Computed example of a mutant assay.
Amino acid sequence: MSDDQTHDSDANKTAHASGAPWRNFYGRIHGKTLNQAQKVYLEEDLPRLAPGPVSWEENPERVKLDLAERFGGKPVWLEVGFGAGEHLIHMAQSYPDVAIIGCEPYVNGVASCLGHMRRLGGLDNVAIHAGDARDLFDVLPDESIEKAFLNYPDPWPKARHHRRRFVTQEHLAPLYRVLEAGAEFRVATDIPDYVRQTMEEVPRAGFEWLGESAEDWRKPWGDWFSTRYEKKAIREGRTPHYMTFRKR
């Protein structure tokens, strides 16, 4: 994520005609030039996969999404930062009776996910928000999400950048609001200092860790799907950590 992609630090101010607040956003939005097929996926598939009107242009009054209408009454899960969609698609296939909203601002990752879904013939229990998770939180109803996933988020290794990590109160407070009471929040990372910050900040936001010892975070979940990123981390000698929390 780059320093020059900022939208301001004061959420109470705005310079957008749509009424959107200024929000700092750090990170890549675009990578390599998309090929023609990926452009088609984004143009044809992404609009119909939206969870609803999330953008400030479409929903300036920030009316809450009707998830029951959108997903036919299915329980709804959320994955923040799904990368290329490997885990998202695996979970959607494993749990066809659950709807999963994937949130990812990196356009190339979204295009890769859409391409994978096309090759599978589509998935009717997946919705995709190609943007900032905070905008999605704005329009999700209170206690509407049954489970959430944060897999290998951007590590921001420099100490002065730790405030940019997802596991800060700026992100965790709205996540707590949209999760149901007793909902599970899973975090996977290979960065020891990210483990430290997660274990400090997530309980502060109102979650309890479900492990009993450090050994508990070394074992992946029974339905876990190891992504290419995790396999690369293991090859390079980094140890994955799997932390499970519950909303109190």
Rank of each mutant, 00 (worst) to 15 (best):
1 M>S: 11
3 D>F: 12
3 D>W: 13
8 D>M: 11
9 S>H: 15
10 D>A: 08
12 N>T: 15
12 N>C: 10
22 W>V: 06
23 R>Y: 07
24 N>C: 10
27 G>H: 09
29 I>W: 14
30 H>C: 06
31 G>T: 04
33 T>H: 12
38 Q>H: 05
38 Q>T: 06
39 K>M: 06
39 K>V: 07
41 Y>M: 13
43 E>D: 13
44 E>T: 07
49 L>V: 00
51 P>M: 01
51 P>H: 01
53 P>I: 00
54 V>P: 11
55 S>T: 02
58 E>L: 10
59 N>M: 07
63 V>Q: 12
65 L>Y: 09
66 D>N: 13
66 D>V: 06
68 A>T: 01
71 F>P: 01
71 F>V: 10
75 P>Y: 01
77 W>P: 03
78 L>V: 06
78 L>Q: 12
81 G>H: 14
87 H>S: 04
91 M>K: 10
92 A>Q: 09
93 Q>V: 08
94 S>K: 13
106 Y>V: 00
108 N>E: 04
109 G>Q: 10
111 A>I: 15
113 C>Y: 09
115 G>A: 14
116 H>C: 15
118 R>E: 06
120 L>W: 03
121 G>H: 04
124 D>M: 05
124 D>V: 04
126 V>M: 10
129 H>I: 00
131 G>A: 07
131 G>H: 03
132 D>G: 09
133 A>S: 05
133 A>H: 00
134 R>C: 01
135 D>N: 14
135 D>K: 14
136 L>C: 07
136 L>N: 08
137 F>S: 00
139 V>G: 02
139 V>S: 04
140 L>Y: 04
142 D>Q: 00
144 S>K: 02
144 S>G: 06
145 I>W: 09
147 K>V: 05
147 K>E: 10
147 K>D: 04
148 A>S: 12
151 N>H: 13
153 P>R: 15
155 P>T: 15
155 P>A: 10
156 W>C: 01
158 K>Y: 12
159 A>R: 14
160 R>Y: 11
160 R>K: 13
161 H>M: 14
163 R>G: 05
163 R>Q: 09
164 R>Q: 03
166 F>P: 11
168 T>C: 09
170 E>A: 14
172 L>Q: 01
173 A>W: 08
173 A>T: 11
175 L>E: 04
175 L>R: 03
176 Y>P: 01
180 E>C: 14
182 G>A: 03
182 G>E: 01
185 F>A: 07
186 R>H: 12
187 V>D: 05
192 P>C: 03
193 D>A: 06
198 T>Q: 12
198 T>I: 05
200 E>G: 06
202 V>E: 08
203 P>K: 04
205 A>K: 10
205 A>F: 11
206 G>H: 04
207 F>H: 04
207 F>A: 03
212 E>H: 12
213 S>A: 13
218 R>Q: 10
218 R>M: 08
222 G>E: 12
223 D>S: 07
226 S>K: 15
226 S>L: 12
230 E>A: 07
233 A>S: 13
237 G>M: 11
238 R>Y: 11
240 P>V: 00
243 M>E: 00
244 T>D: 11
247 K>Y: 07
248 R>F: 07
